[in-house]
Design a protein around this nucleic acid. Structure first.
Lengths: 361, 361
DNA sequence: CTCTGGCACTCGATTGTACCGACTGCCAAG
DNA sequence: CTTGGCAGTCGGTACAATCGAGTGCCAGAG
């Protein structure tokens, strides 16, 4: 990729003006508008000749001859990388965030759900909250609860505040005391170990108990794995306002319904070290009309969680970035202070295994 | 309401033809089309004069002079009440449903989530699943788990398979053994009682324990109350295809995001003894372009849950009704057989209080 | 009295034309 | 290198003509 970063200052200023105006108006912007913009002191004719250069280099396109220019994905990319100011939240929004995190209470799912609502409300884009993976979280409590005649529910409470559950179907009906025994053994073995690495060492005397314990252990493994990650989507209805083609709206919404896709999208973007993915940069074709802004949610240094925003490529990047970062940070703080610093967290932290290595290509 | 039900057979047949065709094509239908329809053996001129009568009586409207007719909400209402055949699922769909309920497994939230996906897929409308209220469900297990220094999580497992949780903030840091004692007292008191009516009778000796127990008890009460009901929405993206005005899509999606509104909408409709609400019949203005189809989900006779479909007023009512009923029934069966018939359910059932009286006007 | 075919009429949708205006590209002069 | 000027392009709008689906009405047949 040769010609990145090297745009002479005037071209850069013109590009900036085009992007800014297009973000505001959604209309192709012509040379006169650019000439009128602040910081530009050349005539429209000069701008025109610069714009053909910018178009040749792929930063702008004309929807048709005799129309203004529109930024390409590359144009937006240059804008966010080189031009956009860090961006700050307005005082009103800042206030909203701090009030939210002062007032919010309750258990974790509710917190995440409402956080995604907050983020969407701040930006008027759709938002996504991806909580940190539970794989490394210490187990605080495990329990087997009998439900149906041959159905028991495995309930695990983790140090990060999450409650995970999985139904287990038994091959035969078992008396309550077997369940209780198995439950106790699980609790003893799992307590304070990370969810991803619970090991039952020695068998008990009772084969029935051992069988149940084995089933439960494999269920715990399932819970730790990635396919169990959940996302919280906020304000999807705002997407309807962001695009004019109803088919685009439909496709984007449909993609948002596929949790796994969204999870890997966010992780991919974060892992590539990006905080913004524009148009086709992430490889997800149905979202090529969208831009994605992500910010990590890190609890105690270890990350894994993220908050994201999904909007049209002509989104307000500075504002979206600022909002995502602030909310991501605050959410991380909140998760840490509320859930993660319990009295027995220390021991859990010592036994935590090597830094989580996610096996994504 | 005088003139309901009394339409001479020919008018009824014409109305039926108009509704059927309009549901299929979304285009205003003219007298010629009706004349060509099966079962109509009069000329288009006759139909025209009948149609002016139907329009005068409010069953049809013309978008403009010299256009065909479109059914009004009243027209649809007559159609579903008097004309539509019961409606059956196609064999392919029937097969999908039975395969789904054979294969599906896992815990309840997952089941509900996937059920709403199924219903949406069957009908191509957006679907809603409202699980039965937990108020009357017996408690199987209650537990207090310490998380942060002053935060404990109350986790309740109910006989219907639900796991409810609530974070409790303590006024002071407490030693683990106080929590354990409180947890044990709660478990003893709540076990097998309905969630809505757990009572701790006598105080223990320890004031610290009693204080925690009191907090937990009020938290249990919160969990039982209606505001805690959750819905599972399936396939909202399908709404984007159902309306052409993007603003309508936005408004409907925004309404679907408000869980409480949807819950009361469904309950209202069910309580009025309806299974279909068309246009403005439910009082929810933003949904006046929609029709809602609901079917109860009853577990062991007591109902409270529901499945619903949300689509344009020109939805395929017979098919939607059939799908909702079948899925609602199957879901009820599934909930009963998997979760509700456990060994200790008997005692719970005996202590169940008077039939739940929901206080909705 | 009801039904029907015929007929005049209405009105949205489509097509064609003209025009305006917002652009651009190019060029010659500063 | 920059600039103002100018011709040219093309989408959007306004307007008229046309088309056609569909209506309402009516006179005549059954």
């Amino acid at each position: 990729m040769p010609d990145t970063q090297d745009l002479d200052p005037r071209k850069a200023a013109i590009l900036e003006a085009v992007v800014s105006e297009y973000i505001g108006t959604a209309q192709p912007v012509g040379s006169h508008h650019v000439a009128r913009a602040a910081g530009i002191n050349v005539s429209s004719a000069t701008i025109r000749s610069e714009m053909v250069a910018l178009e040749r280099e792929g930063y702008l396109v004309q929807p048709h001859t005799s129309a203004g220019r529109v930024p390409t994905d590359k144009g937006y990319r240059f804008f966010v990388d080189q031009l956009a100011e860090p961006g700050v939240l307005g005082p009103a929004q800042r206030h909203k965030v701090s009030r939210f995190f002062e007032q919010v209470h309750g258990e974790m799912e509710e917190l995440l759900e409402r956080t995604s609502g907050l983020l969407s409300e701040l930006t008027s884009y759709a938002s996504v909250v991806l909580p940190p993976s539970h794989e490394a979280a210490a187990v605080r409590s495990v329990q087997l609860v009998g439900l149906g005649p041959r159905v028991v529910l495995l309930v695990a409470v983790l140090a990060d505040g999450a409650v995970e559950k999985q139904a287990i179907e038994l091959p035969e009906e078992l008396p309550d005391d077997v369940l209780a025994a198995a439950s106790a053994r699980l609790q003893a073995a799992a307590q304070a170990h990370p969810l991803g690495s619970v090991q039952i060492t020695e068998p008990s005397g009772d084969t029935q108990v051992d069988r149940v314990v084995a089933l439960a252990q494999s269920a715990l493994g399932d819970l730790a794995c990635e396919a169990h990650d959940r996302i919280f989507v906020g304000g999807p209805s705002r997407l309807a306002g962001a695009f004019d083609a109803v088919e685009t709206v439909r496709a984007v919404l449909a993609t948002l319904e596929q949790q796994l896709v969204v999870v890997s999208l966010l992780r991919d973007v974060l892992e590539r070290g990006l905080s913004v993915a524009i148009g086709a940069e992430h490889g997800y074709e149905p979202l090529s009309a969208c831009a994605v802004v992500v910010a990590p949610v890190s609890v105690d240094g270890r990350s894994g969680g993220a908050v994201g925003l999904l909007g049209p490529t002509r989104m307000n990047y500075p504002q979206a970035l600022a909002a995502a970062r602030v909310v991501g940070e605050q959410l991380g703080d909140r998760l840490r202070t509320t859930f993660d610093a319990g009295p027995s967290a220390r021991s859990a932290r010592e036994t935590r295994p090597r830094r989580r290595a996610r096996g994504r290509r």
